[in-house]
Design a protein around this nucleic acid. Structure first.
Lengths: 150, 150
DNA sequence: TTAAGTGCAAATATTTTGCTGTCAC
DNA sequence: GTGACAGCAAAATATTTGCACTTAA
C-alpha cells in the first residue's frame, strides 16, 4: 500500500527545515515520494506518485521542488546513460557516492561503491586543484545475466 | 578561417567507410565539424558550423548523424553537468577515456586522464561482472581560478 | 537501380516562466 | 501580515518522426 504522507518526517524534510526553508503540504508529499522510492524515479513518476497522495499537486511544483533539493545538494540528478529518452532520475544523495551501471540490454540499473572511486576523486582534487561539489560516474554495458548464453 | 570540407578524410569518415556506411556530402561536412572542433559542441553549434560550409544542411540531419556516430561508438555524448540547459555535447571518442570537470562558476570544462580511472573501470568489470561499453565521469565544482581570492 | 539519406513540416518530450491567488510562519 | 509558494496557462528548449524527393554506391 502507498505510504501515508503523515509518516515520520524524513531526512530531506529535516534538512530543509534546518536550512530555514518553508515546508508546504505539497513539498512534504514530494519529499516523501523521493525519500521512500525503492528505485530511481523521473519527474513524471514522482508527479504520479505524489498525486496519489495529493491529487491537486502540479507538475510545475514537482520540478520546482526537485530544483530546490538539487540546489541544496540533497538529491543527485542522474541520466542513467539516457537509456529511455532524455529524462532525469533522482535519488536522495547518499552518504557515500556510488557508481551507476546501466545494462543496455535489460535496462536494469546496478549500483556500486568503491574505495577506488573515492581515491580517484581525491586524486582529481589534488592533481587538478579542483574542488569537487558533485560527481557522477555512469557506465553503460552488459550485466552478467545479459552477457551469459541464456 | 573555417576549415574547408575538402580536407583530408578524418578518422570518423574512415571509420564509417570501414563499416560500410554510406557517406553523403552532408555527413562528410558534419563529420568534419565534429572532428576539428576545438571544444565540446552541442547539436545547435554543430549545425551552425556545418551550415557555414553547406547552408542547405538541416538540423534533423545533424541529429541523425550524431545518433549514427553514437551508435557506432565513434563519439561520446556528454552532459557536462547540465550547466547550460539540458543539451548534450559531443566529442570524438578518444583513445583513452577522460574525466570532465565543469567549473560551476566560470563554466570552463577541464579534462583529466587518470590511471586510477582506468583501474576503477577494470574493478567494476571484475567485481560486478559487468561488461563496460561506455562510461562517463563528470564532476562539478570549482577550478583553481574560481576558488582563489581574485 | 535502389536502398538509404535528406529536407521540410509537424509532433513529441522535458522543463521553465509569468502571473495571480494562497498559505506557512 | 507578508514574502514565499502553488496552480494554471503558455512558452521555451531539445529532439524525433512521417513522408516525398534525392543520391551514393
Amino acid at each position: 500500500m502507498p505510504l501515508p504522507q503523515t509518516e515520520a518526517p524524513g531526512r530531506l524534510q529535516a534538512a530543509l527545515t534546518a536550512r530555514g526553508v518553508r515546508l508546504t503540504h505539497q513539498r512534504r508529499t514530494i519529499l516523501g515520494v523521493v525519500e521512500n522510492a525503492s528505485q530511481h524515479l523521473d519527474a513524471a513518476q514522482i508527479l504520479r506518485q505524489a498525486r496519489r497522495l495529493d491529487p491537486g499537486i502540479d507538475r510545475v511544483t514537482v520540478y520546482r521542488t526537485l530544483k530546490l533539493l538539487k540546489r541544496y545538494g540533497l538529491i543527485d540528478e542522474l541520466d542513467l546513460m539516457h537509456m529511455q529518452g532524455e529524462k532525469h532520475y533522482y535519488e536522495r544523495r547518499p552518504q557515500r557516492d556510488h557508481i551507476h551501471m546501466a545494462c543496455l540490454r535489460c535496462g536494469n540499473i546496478f549500483e556500486f561503491e568503491s574505495d577506488l572511486f573515492d581515491r580517484l576523486k581525491r586524486e582529481i582534487e589534488r592533481d587538478c586543484r579542483f574542488h569537487i561539489v558533485v560527481s557522477r560516474l555512469e557506465v553503460g554495458g552488459y550485466c552478467t545475466q545479459c552477457r551469459s548464453p541464456e
